[in-house]
């Protein structure tokens, strides 16, 4: 298949789009591209997450590392994550406004008989663009710890931009479902059956969007997959369509850097001559 001919431009058809999930069909592309998209969505879409926690006071029952870990996993609104620099690209030595967001948490329990819940709603962000996400006003927030009377937590958190390759807390999506060929026409898999394949194996919901095989269809061993069913569920830090778009951007970046690499054989890389020329 010629990927670059105008007739074969990849196409996306969105099946479903809600606040936290998107379902779409990607057509006219190669399996490797589709899978690359999936992989990037999981691991390379940049988000903001708490990365450093400075403990001023922690008299709760939970250990410092424990709370820090929980704080890190709280999804922060990362819709504008591209407005912020990666820490490694920033000129500052530690953390500055360019590359980080400070959040503060200071809770003390004064209630007599009950415990007090410390939630993500207690996190006060210095930058209104990057706040812990909430699902409407009724949302109680994500529980961080419970305090008893007299216990107190006072911490300073520094959120940074990052990708899930480094730590899963930067991943914007919860689950990415990916499928092609729900009827197994390509025979990429072998159903394990006792008696009857159709009886024993439930159909995936993507089967409704695919073309069921004819009873007398002849197996085409040259066929290539070109309809890919995606379903992405976010953790709330980003809109699902943004994840897909950002992933495409990232993919494009990667492809173009490969292209650059392929076309610039003679250009010194990192100031050195390509090794090929040595001989």
């Amino acid at each position: 298949m010629d990927l670059f001919s105008p007739a074969n431009k990849p196409e996306i058809r969105i099946q479903e789009l809600t606040g936290e999930r998107i379902r779409f069909i990607l057509t006219n592309t190669d399996l490797s591209m589709a899978n690359a998209l999936r992989r990037i969505m999981i691991s390379e879409v940049a988000t903001i997450a708490i990365d450093m926690v400075q403990f001023d006071l922690n008299t709760s029952v939970l250990a410092d590392e424990f709370i820090a870990h929980r704080l890190g996993l709280i999804p922060l609104d990362s819709t504008e994550a591209d407005k912020i620099k990666y820490p490694r690209d920033c000129n500052c030595s530690g953390a500055c406004k360019e590359c980080s967001v400070e959040l503060n948490l200071h809770v003390k329990c004064t209630e007599e008989d009950t415990t007090k819940d410390v939630t993500s709603k207690d996190l006060v962000s210095h930058d209104p663009r990057f706040t812990p996400i909430t699902e409407g006003p009724k949302d109680a927030g994500i529980l961080i710890a419970k305090l008893r009377k007299g216990q107190e937590i006072k911490v300073k958190c520094i959120a940074k931009k990052g990708v899930a390759k480094e730590h899963a807390k930067w991943s914007p999506c919860a689950a990415v479902a990916f499928e092609y060929d729900p009827f197994n026409k390509l025979r990429h898999t072998h159903y394990w059956i006792e008696e009857d394949e159709k009886k024993e194996w439930p159909q995936s919901k993507n089967a409704n969007d695919d073309f069921p095989p004819l009873d007398d269809e002849i197996f085409d061993f040259t066929a290539k997959p070109n309809r890919f069913y995606f379903e992405i569920e976010t953790i709330g830090s980003m809109k699902p369509e943004d994840i897909v778009m950002n992933a495409f951007k990232k993919l494009l970046e990667k492809i173009s850097s490969i292209q650059m690499g392929l076309h610039s054989n003679d250009v010194p890389i990192n100031g050195r001559e390509p090794t090929r020329d040595v001989f």
Binding site: H188, T189, H190
Partner: peptide, 26 residues
């Protein structure tokens, strides 16, 4: 399992994360 759209055997259709192709076995 059947009621929730899974195979009664507990086996699932699994895709390789590296290639994106389904694994040949369940």
């Amino acid at each position: 399992l059947i009621k929730h759209g899974y195979s009664y055997s507990g086996k699932d259709y699994v895709t390789s994360g590296i290639t994106g192709e389904p694994l040949s076995a369940y």
